[in-house]
Amino acid sequence: MTAVSPDAGRIWTAARGPLLIGVIILFAAVVITLLRGSGEGGALDPRSFRPEGSHAVADLLEQNGVRVELTDNASAVDGATLFVTQPNLIDPERLADLSRRAAATVLLAPAPGLDRVEPGTRQPGCPLADRAGAATLGGFTYEGDQSCYDSTLVRTGTVTTIGYGGIFTNRDVDEEGNAALALSLLGQHERLVWYVPSAADRSQQKSLTGLIPDGWKYGALQLGIAAVLIALWRARRLGRVVPEPLPVVVRAAETVEGRARLYRRSHAASHAASVLRQATRDRLAPLLGVPPGDDPSEEIARRTSRPVTSVRALLYDKEPVDDRGLVALAASLDALENEVRKA
């Protein structure tokens, strides 16, 4: 005979593969998270102390009485300076709307630029940034009403476009006139909304169906047709279901079990006791050669050396019994019967 239920060894053999895969996935996730670093370490993040962070600039602004609000989903920009670190992630219409409402807007390296230039120290060459003097700028050049630093910083109306974010970073803020330029750009008003758009921003603008190519919409429709056809194929039965004429069958012992439950529910211990006593007497009478219905107590006492009174009390006692007494009585009746059978 072979046992079919699995033992510990077999469970381990079956489970070690999936377990190993799970451990590898967990390990990879931990390593990737550690390597990517925390969310606060992002470039141009006003909370970041890293070289590419911007805590120094934010700190300077606070000291000059400017309230800096970091957000990844700008909405309340009225009357404030809006600083967008990654304008390319934002829908152009939304960006235009935001800059119309903001008192001043600074965009960092929006696409498309005119030309690509290496970052380096440049002279202002315009009244806009005369107070700051030379600064580290570069990146892209743009076209605008006022053009400074070899067109890497331009202003059209309230919108200032800057080609390179070096002047805002912790690493370069103390070079040349970078700090002064950063303060003059971002500290124009009491409030500064520091907008770091997240990748989620873009998808909010367009619905999911709008992003799906047309071909797949019709493909999905065709898929629905295919599903209906497959359903029709599977649903068609080869001939009708044949019912089984079942005969009436009841468990024969059900009435006996029902009676047992009734006894128990009504705590009919005394009644059950008298039934058990009667059954024992009925079984013992033929063994002892006593006519059925007669009292076998004396004969039992003679054979088992038990006192007659105790045997008679066991077999005939009319005292009411409780539930616990009933179990004990059943056991002592059994003991008596065994004794008689052995004698």
């Binding site: 024969a252 006996v256 047992a260 128990r264 009667q278 059954a279 009933l326």
Partner: peptide, 29 residues
Amino acid sequence: SDPAVHAMAAGRGDLEAVYSAAAAERTLA
């Protein structure tokens, strides 16, 4: 006759078994 009833009549131990035994004995009687 039903072997289940005979098995019930031989039941001992807890209260339920003894009540079942009484019910079965009643049927056998």
